[in-house]
Simulated scan of single mutants.
Amino acid sequence: MASQAPQGLPLFYKDLIPLSQQEHAGWRYVPLQTADFLKNEHAVPLTIDEFAVSQRFFPIIFSSGDNPVPLALMGLNEGINTFVDDEGKFNDDVYVPAYVRRYPYLLARLNESSDELSLCVDPTSGGIAKVDEGDTIFDGEEISNYTKELLQFLEGFEQAGQRTGAFVQELKDNDLLMEGEVTIQQNEGGDPMVYRGFQMVNEEKLRALRGDVLRKMMQSGLLPLVHAHLFSLSVMREIFARQVAQGKTPAPGTAPAIV
């Protein structure tokens, strides 16, 4: 889940610039008051460090394709987020994934020939400004304490992303992922909604794993993560119910894809 910039910008980001003492001396951080960048996004990347708490709120699925990524579903249909209103405000007390909390900041590799990561910001977000109030980006020639805390959070996120990549690779190595499908009956006697376009763990193959493989997964902490993912799938119907209550459900029979 390491970020690249500026060629392929990650989800949410419209632009990316590095923070520098030369350009941003005297600038301050401006906390975002809303998450309007999130209101039309139904799926957000998730790290395995967040599975335990996220399973209570969101279905945890894996994206389709050869390089699957764990995703927290905030809605079942593209463009629908059941946790954020039209003004970008959260309408419930819900866990906010780290991927969302890091915006508009990012550790990005600005030079493909270097492994060095730079602290960057989306300048279109309003997350920094030359104002008189707020936490400073720099204190003289040094970065501020707030910047140090931000870097610590972003570095932790990158490390969690690496652990997540290793977890997904182990699922692939053991051939545990399969194409998912969920059918939800909206009204009695009506056509069901069929959701596809995602991957999930194949429980039959999980049960068929050799004992030594399962033991290794248990000892490494990976097996509880798989169970968290599987348990979370029951939340799919709760998210559908939220869409119905908010009037955001597509016409029956359209069989929309999740991702």
Rank of each mutant, 00 (worst) to 15 (best):
T164W: 02
L222V: 02
S220M: 04
R207K: 14
L222M: 11
R210A: 11
Q219A: 13
F198W: 08
D212A: 14
G211T: 10
Q219P: 04
V168P: 00
F198S: 01
P192A: 14
V213T: 12
F198P: 02
E179G: 10
G180S: 08
N187C: 14
D175Y: 10
Q162P: 05
M178N: 05
M218S: 14
V182H: 00
R163P: 02
T183V: 15
K172M: 09
M193K: 04
F167S: 03
L177S: 09
M200S: 09
E158R: 14
G180H: 03
G189C: 13
P192C: 12
N202I: 02
F198D: 00
V194E: 06
A208F: 05
Q199V: 05
Q199S: 09
A166H: 08
K216P: 03
Q162K: 15
F198T: 01
T164Y: 01
L214F: 05
L171H: 00
Q159R: 15
S220G: 08
A160N: 07
E203Q: 10
K205C: 08
G221M: 02
T183K: 11
Q185W: 12
Y195V: 09
Q159I: 12
K205G: 07
K172T: 07
V226F: 01
V168S: 01
R215I: 07
D212T: 15
V182D: 03
Q162L: 14
N202K: 05
K205V: 10
L225D: 00
V194C: 11
Q159P: 05
G221Y: 00
N187R: 14
V182G: 01
E179N: 13
K172W: 05
Q159K: 15
M200Y: 02
E158T: 13
Q199M: 08
E204Y: 01
Q169H: 12
D212Y: 10
Q169R: 14
G221P: 07
M193I: 12
T183I: 13
V226R: 00
L171F: 01
M178A: 11
D191V: 15
I184V: 15
T183S: 11
F167M: 03
E203V: 08
R215K: 14
R207T: 11
G180P: 04
G211E: 12
E181A: 09
Q199C: 09
R215Y: 07
G221E: 04
T183Q: 12
K205Y: 13
L225R: 00
